[in-house]
């Protein structure tokens, strides 16, 4: 389980995370929602061991994230792969780097998402690039999958395909998937557990269907309300 205890992170004087206490439920698809600048990326990066907290701590199955590298697959929002690489080259790189690389899974998802592996990152559309990044991340049999804005800047068809690829993959593994996004609509029905961050604080937390039942509102409406209340 990934657990945050009194986690804080400041960038200069700006707090990105403010005394966050949180345990991410196992085996679920979790939506990490919130407006831009709410601290979603920082939270994910801290869980992935890519950001050092200013205070408090985060543990993955009882140890520091850096010691749990093999259990964590992280998809960054930015493009980190060289643009002259083909998808195939990137896959080979991943395979060499991560022992949990599952080539069958990679091939299946490539086929499912209609991607050719001789495509170069420099030449492909944003949608294709987003899909390729996702395939590379999901092809690892990591226990925890952390996705930072996987829908960022891509068209609605590619979004749908990505959502379906996520469901597909999830059904096949015993994974915990965290999706950080400000585009809630696309995956509203896909996430089972909701975390809403605003100004580095958690303002809404819980089971998605339970929240709908309690409030009689959509997740988006509940978020908006929490946002208006300004995290009180």
């Amino acid at each position: 389980m990934i657990i945050f205890e009194k986690a804080g992170k400041n960038f200069g004087r700006t707090p990105a995370l403010n005394n966050v206490n949180l345990s991410l439920p196992e085996g679920k698809i979790i939506g990490l929602f919130g407006p831009n600048g709410a601290g979603k990326s920082t939270l994910l990066k801290a869980a992935a061991g890519l950001v050092r907290l200013s205070s408090g701590r985060v543990t993955v199955d009882g140890k520091a994230p850096r010691q749990r590298r093999t259990r964590l697959a992280y998809l960054p929002e930015q493009n980190t792969l060289p643009s002259n690489w083909t998808i195939k080259r990137a896959a080979e790189f991943y395979r060499a780097f991560f022992a949990d690389w599952d080539n069958k899974r990679y091939e299946k998802q490539m086929e499912f998402l209609n991607l050719k592996d001789d495509l170069r990152f420099a030449r492909i559309s944003r949608g294709q690039r987003a899909k390729a990044k996702l395939v590379l991340t999901l092809a690892r049999q990591a226990r925890y999958i952390l996705l930072d804005e996987p829908f960022s800047g891509i068209d609605i068809l590619a979004r749908e395909e990505i959502s379906k690829a996520l469901v597909r993959d999830y059904s096949e593994g015993q994974q915990t998937i965290v999706v950080a996004t400000h585009e809630i609509d696309e995956i509203e029905n896909l996430v089972e557990h909701i975390i809403f961050l605003d100004n580095g604080r958690i303002t809404v937390l819980g089971d998605a269907d339970e929240l709908r039942r309690q409030e009689g509102k959509s997740i988006v409406a509940i978020m908006k309300e929490a946002f208006r209340d300004g995290g009180k």
Binding site: K28, I29, K164, V167, R168, Y170, S171, I187, N189, E192
Partner: peptide, 17 residues
């Protein structure tokens, strides 16, 4: 359950429930 989840983009655990 799995096909339902995929087709309608619903969480597999929700379909299972």
């Amino acid at each position: 359950q799995r096909n339902y989840a995929e087709q309608y983009k619903v969480n597999p655990n929700t379909v299972q429930r």
